[in-house]
């Protein structure tokens, strides 16, 4: 069964990949070791795990403005997430995604996206259409 989640129109290209999910927030500066490509903040729900080429599914953006540059810098080195799906993005994540041409979507009609998608689910994200398709929907 294929299930489609509706969300607000987002930014970036259409992508397909594996989800990594946590009920936690996101800041490239506060949470990541961008050289190693892992979550480095000890208190983060994904601490120690690699985010490289993952579709990160998290709650909201936190912290400051650095993420707007950092997504571009991370992607230029090929050590970056494939996409970000959030309940609520902020201006900084949108700006960073626009510069990096990284896929970003938020505001899901069916509720809390961190409950709708599980880690290791395969999903396809279409920001232009505002749709996330669950390819292995249970």
């Amino acid at each position: 069964m294929v299930k489609v989640l509706r969300c607000h129109v987002g930014i970036g290209p259409r992508v397909e990949g594996e989800a990594m999910v946590a009920n936690d927030n996101f800041s490239a500066r506060y949470d990541l070791d961008r050289i190693r490509g892992v979550f480095s903040r000890p208190e983060h729900a994904l601490a120690g795990q690699s985010y490289v080429d993952k579709i990160l599914v998290l709650n909201t953006a936190k912290g400051g403005v650095a993420t707007a540059w950092m997504l571009y810098e991370m992607k230029s080195r090929g050590i970056a997430p494939m996409a970000l799906l959030l309940n609520s993005a902020n201006s900084i994540l949108a700006q960073g995604a626009a510069l990096a041409n990284m896929t970003l979507c938020d505001r899901f009609d069916a509720g809390d996206v961190t409950q709708l998608i599980a880690t290791a689910d395969r999903v396809r994200v279409d920001p232009e259409a505002g749709e996330v398709t669950m390819l292995n929907a249970r």
Partner: peptide, 15 residues
Amino acid sequence: MMADPESIGEAGVAL
């Protein structure tokens, strides 16, 4: 503009 070199990196400076 916030733009420290750690954040922008080589890619941002080149832009």
